[in-house]
Design a protein around this nucleic acid. Sequence first.
DNA 1: TGAAGGATTTGT
DNA 2: CAAATCCTTCAC
Length: 206
Amino acid sequence: MQFISEPAPAIAPDWFARPSTQVAPDLLGCTLVRQLPSGAVIRGLIVETEAYAPGDPACHAYRRQTQRNAVMFGPAGLTYVYLIYGIYHCLNLVTDGDGVPSAVLLRALQLEAVSAGGDRAATQKLDRVAAGPGKLCRALQIDQTLNAHALRPNTALWVEHRSPDCDRALAQMPDAITQTTRIGLTQGVELPWRWYLTQSKAVSKR
DNA sequence: TGAAGGATTTGT
DNA sequence: CAAATCCTTCAC
């Protein structure tokens, strides 16, 4: 079953103004849209997310507000992009109310095939290109210059709602979404705040 | 001012 | 399992 379909309405900032643990699973099946400076557009279905919340020792904002994590304390609907291990970038979407530091990490996308044309090998390869938070940002050419970006249609980055078909399919199938623990953390390891589309071939490894 | 370490990925 | 690689954070 494929969830990719026609462009759906863009998600408004208010939609993100809920706890990250609610937004994270709801983002599955939505489409992340990146418009490059050249005007080229890359679209990908969100297939894996993680939530970070207040009181969560793994959250960058756990200790206090700093210059880096400041955007997480702000209003919902903004991006939080940071550099990890000096090599990769990670893309978060800020959630919850103003003053409540929380966000959802986008861990994997199923990229929309532009001209795959039923090529099995090409499709399999495409499934791995954005499978992981670092690879996702590499594929979409996302770096710190996109930090604190407001998600709005026809800007550099925005998110579109699930298609009606996708929404229906996820609602009908109880096991369509898997909830489990987060990856790569040293703290908050036990919290089951990672979600992914169970059947997706584009989720991150490990 | 310095040192430790990280929400990752890749190759040995 | 260790390297790559650099920015952020915290300690002194």
